[in-house]
Amino acid sequence: MDFMTALPTILKAMTMGAVPILLAALGEVFSERAGLVNIGLEGVMAIGAFVGFAVGKMTGNLWVGLLAGMAAGVLVNMLYAFCTVTLCADQVVTGMAINILAPAIALFGYNLFVGSNSANATGAQMPSIAIPGLSDIPFIGNAFFNQTLLAYLAFILVPLVRYFFKHFRAGLSFRSVGENPHAAETLGINVVRMKYVACIVCGLLTAAGGAFLTLCYTPIYTDGIVMGRGFIALATVIFGRWTALGVLGASLLFGFFDGLNVALQAQFQAAPVMFFKMIPYIFTIIALIFFGSKHAGPKANGQPYFREQR
């Protein structure tokens, strides 16, 4: 096949595939920087996708839908925060429970919403906005400069998050909480509050990533629409070394493989494209082996913080 002719399609699929992962991964960066490994992204995305879809359909305003989806995401993530921060429950187990509970709630809501009125099955989609001039650049123009507003916002978020962690007092405090909460506490930083704030931000962004799926990617909600993107976002954070720029690169990479699959599938009906789909996961493992555990992110990541322990 002619790779060059397929390239614009691949790149377009890449950016479309990258955005939801990017949003969720940025949320997870906040969470893990504050020492909370949240594997419940998958569930939070599902809630964001469904509520965004349903409210967008009901109100006819997709932005209201997006905001509602994000609020719902925060609500679900507060459950995670309460269990892990206040009750000091195991983070992975709690995240897993969210992954089982949240999609169930979404499916239940969907059944009620669409079951009562099948006209509700298809929603509207955000329009793409082509940036004049830039969108005509060969190969990358259509992929990067002809997108929905939400996608632009996601990409703009990357430098903002980077700036936040580098130049905001709160950004510094966030990092200290994930690295050494006891030292942070001695310097007057409220560790518990920091962790809750991280969960709120994580819920907002992750749910926005989920809402992107139903508001920009495809106009319908189906059970399992997230399709493991939450876990990929988790891998993206590791692969991107817990930084906003790294996460951007990693999610584009994962999106690229996604796009490659789409293109290849179109070219060869029966080609073993699944091996391409494996690549991101194998990549993550290899990257981990390469970097080793020494530089494996915030040091207090995943550990409960008992204030009583001094």
């Binding site: 969210i98 089982i100 509970l101 169930a104 499916l107 239940f108 969907y110």
Partner: peptide, 8 residues
């Protein structure tokens, strides 16, 4: 889905 919710 109610059953799923109960399980969760």
């Amino acid at each position: 889905a109610i059953v799923e919710i109960i399980r969760g």
